[in-house]
């Protein structure tokens, strides 16, 4: 009997099991992280937009648009923010951070609305746009484009870590299984050799080695029981052979 045959079957079973676990947990992870990060993004974006809208009130009323531009430019150092624009109450853009121009999709939209919008813009990428009214909408509104690709990157990172962990556990399981099955197969091999040598003795060959078999015979587990059964059969065999 070969340990490799037993191992192949076990390894396939482990592989299938881990595959199912990896796929199931990855799907769950993607859904959970996407949901959490999107909600976190919306919340953070709304808070930044609200803070910007509040600080814009004084600047818009008492200062000028170049000061307003300098103010929104500072927010552009936040990695997640792809763009900011501010419109007046009629929806006309007063300041923005786009280069080389305001995307047509934004110009074509109703810029007075502050609802959350998902956009996929040329030269900008996928964004989650959040808005906040300034002075309750009387002085216009401020809009922030939050980089959605960062959510994708974070999901990839989370799934990657999970797959990495599962892969490590999978490899360790395979190695442990191989070790255990090898240990389990070793006495079976001794038994096999003992039975083969018994058969050879019956055909006039040399006596089987009793020393290694004796160790199995004294075991108190299934292998010991099997060894004892083999011994009993062996003890019966000469008489039946002779009869």
């Amino acid at each position: 009997m070969s340990g490799a045959h037993l191992f192949r079957g076990a390894a396939f079973g482990i592989f299938v099991l881990f595959g199912v676990i990896a796929v199931a947990t990855s799907v769950l992870c993607v859904r959970t992280v996407d949901k959490q990060l999107t909600s976190e993004y919306e919340e953070n974006g709304a808070q930044i937009a609200q803070a910007l809208a509040s600080s814009s009130e004084d600047v818009l009323v008492n200062r000028d648009l170049s000061t307003m531009q300098a103010l929104i430019d500072q927010y552009m150092s936040i990695r997640a923010i792809k763009y900011i624009y501010l419109v007046d109450e009629k929806g006309e853009i007063l300041v923005h951070t786009f280069v080389p121009e305001v995307p047509a999709a934004i110009r074509a939209s109703d810029m007075t609305r502050t609802a959350i919008v998902r956009r996929d813009l040329a030269n900008v990428g996928a964004v989650l746009e959040v808005g906040a009214p300034i002075l309750g909408g009387l002085a216009g509104s401020v809009h922030l484009g939050m980089d959605s690709s960062l959510i994708g990157l974070k999901i990839k990172a989370a799934v990657g870590q999970q797959v990495y962990l599962i892969s490590v556990i999978f490899i360790l399981s395979i190695m442990l299984s191989a070790l255990l099955l090898r240990r389990a197969a070793r006495p079976l091999k001794v038994l096999e050799q003992y039975i083969v040598s018994l058969h050879a003795t019956a055909s006039g060959g040399a006596q089987p080695s009793e020393a290694r078999f004796e160790a199995l015979h004294n075991r108190r587990d299934e292998i010991g029981a099997l060894a004892r059964a083999v011994r009993a059969l062996a003890n019966d065999k000469p008489s039946s052979g002779r009869g």
């Binding site: 000028d64 648009l65 170049s66 000061t67 531009q69 300098a70 430019d73 951070t97 786009f98």
Partner: peptide, 11 residues
Amino acid sequence: QGDAYGRDGWV
């Protein structure tokens, strides 16, 4: 220029 200078001139 996409900054306060550009905006001032634009205005």
